[in-house]
Write a protein that binds this DNA or RNA. Structure first.
Length: 454
RNA sequence: GGCCACGUGGCCGAACGGUUAGGCGCGGGUCUGCAAAACCCUUUAAUCCGGUUCGACUCCGGACGUGGCCUCCA
């Protein structure tokens, strides 16, 4: 069975045909590490992890090369570095911040059930490669130097705007800021810019400076995946200008008509119906969400919506997902762990059809209803949702102290004694008392169990 | 202003030119001393206005709404 993917280049669903089935090459734009990861960052991380898993499944675990970069050079980082560590040397301050955020980001990705990419290169470790590309673009007259900046000449690349479906005229109509004096054309973009004293800088043929946005991805994708690779992924918000500019640079540099055969974009994410923004004060940090919901819930909640569809991230949908997971978890004891872990056909087909996770989840509900728990669990496993870790975390999450726990056990014994004596008035009093304490009792066949409410 | 995506039942969320997707929740029931869990039953929708068609939630046009992007700026 082949994988079908919606390709932003052709604007339609296409059969995925790799350049070389023995080595699949996927590049995904990773985070700019300037602030704690938020829920919006999680979407591409989860979506492309799933694609990584599908590709591994079809072509072999060791045949897929998944590169997800870390952008650690950016003016936002500079600003925060100066704010947070005014006494440190700027480069040290930046290191401090980017290292810290990178650790949180990677830790979060693991909690969300994501496999580690094959390679996670950092932009700052590839400045030499960037300079080489810029130098070559200058030699080939695709770029020019002005006022210490190196600028990409948009008019040297005829296909500009193809990915984002924008014509030069449309783009010009949108130009609303004052155009920088060093640009010949308002649409030209910066490859290299000079650095002030308190900005990070590297030596270059054009003086001390730093790379512009976009060039890092051209440099790192070429280095690790080659001139042309299979899949380039990221959020739809990156299609323009980021990916458009990457294509212009890379294709001009390599003299190719393509950078990657498939551009795959995930849809946007809103918070309770509104755009997430700092000014609106509704930035949902992943670390906060993961405090209240296990990574499996966050992951499943994300996958309940098709990846290209806009998603409205709400507390309510998280609660719904938690309900589903708890229900599925109830079947865990009936799982035959020895059973073959083969992905059920229907789930396999759904996922290979442009990652139709909602359809796959529908099949999983069917498996549960038909008591085909092994199929359900094989599917969950394939989606990267680990219910076993969830199970453990329920216990761990209980914030009941030891003393409290002893007290609960005493009360349970007391109640069971009352029940044995048919003193239901007393037994109900104890139930109520525990409920007020936030403990719910469950009389099971072999004894009374308890759980914390909420 | 330009380009684009989306608008499905109380809520989430698919497929599909004609056959009640599915889930969550609500309600009812079985079970239970009472609960909880589980199980069973129940709950028929497509923002609006036109058009194409024997037939449209599905295709086309328009309106309205929500959201994204419009180049170094957070």
């Amino acid at each position: 069975m082949d994988i079908f993917l919606y390709n932003s280049l052709s604007k339609q669903k296409e059969r995925f045909i790799p350049l070389d089935p023995r080595s699949i090459k996927m590049y995904v734009c990773g985070p700019t590490v300037y602030d704690e990861p938020h829920i919006g960052n999680a979407r591409p991380v989860i979506v492309f992890d799933l694609l990584f898993r599908l590709l591994r499944y079809k072509y072999g675990n060791d045949k897929v090369n998944y590169v997800r970069n870390i952008t650690d050079v950016d003016d936002k980082i500079n600003k925060i570095a100066l704010q947070k560590y005014p006494d440190l040397d700027i480069n040290e301050a930046i290191r401090e911040i980017t290292n810290k955020i990178e650790v949180i980001f990677k830790d979060t990705a693991i909690k969300l059930g994501c496999l580690e990419p094959s390679k996670e290169p950092r932009a700052t470790e590839h400045v030499t490669e960037m300079i080489n590309i810029i130098d070559s673009l200058l030699i080939n007259k695709k770029a020019y130097v002005n006022e210490g900046h190196v600028i990409f000449d948009i008019n040297s690349y005829s296909n500009y705007g193809h990915l984002s479906n924008k014509s030069k005229e449309d783009l010009m109509a949108g130009v609303r800021i004052e155009v920088a004096t060093y640009k010949r054309d308002p649409l030209d973009f910066v490859l290299w810019k000079p650095s002030a004293v308190n900005e990070p800088s590297w030596d270059s043929p054009w003086g001390r400076g730093r790379p512009g946005w976009h060039i890092e991805c051209s440099a790192m994708s070429a280095k690790y995946l080659g001139e042309v690779f299979d899949i380039h992924g990221g959020g739809i918000d990156l299609a323009f200008p980021h990916h458009e500019n990457e294509i212009a640079q890379s294709c001009s540099y390599n003299d190719n008509d393509k950078m990657a055969n498939y551009f795959i974009h995930n849809g946007t994410l809103n918070i309770e119906g509104k755009k997430m923004s700092k000014s609106a004060g509704n930035v949902t940090l992943l670390t906060d969400t993961l405090q209240n919901y296990h990574g499996s819930i966050v992951r499943l909640n994300m996958l309940r919506t098709h990846y290209r569809q806009p998603i409205d991230w709400t507390e309510r949908s998280l609660e719904q997902t938690e309900n589903v997971i708890r229900k599925w978890l109830s079947a865990a004891k009936d799982i035959n762990t020895e059973a073959n872990k083969e992905v059920p056909k229907e789930v396999h087909e759904s996922l290979f059809d442009d990652m139709n996770t909602p359809m796959a989840i529908t099949h999983m509900h069917e498996y549960f209803n038909k008591h085909e728990y092994n199929k359900l669990y094989a599917s969950l496993d394939f989606l990267g949702i680990d219910l076993k870790s969830f199970n453990n975390s329920i216990k761990k999450d209980k914030k009941i102290s030891k003393i409290n726990e002893d007290e609960i056990h005493i009360l349970i014994e007391e109640r069971n004694l009352a029940r044995a004596n048919k003193d239901f008035k007393k037994s109900d009093e104890i139930r109520n008392k525990l409920e007020i304490m936030g403990i719910r009792l469950k009389d099971m066949e072999n004894g009374t169990e308890w759980e914390q409410i909420e």
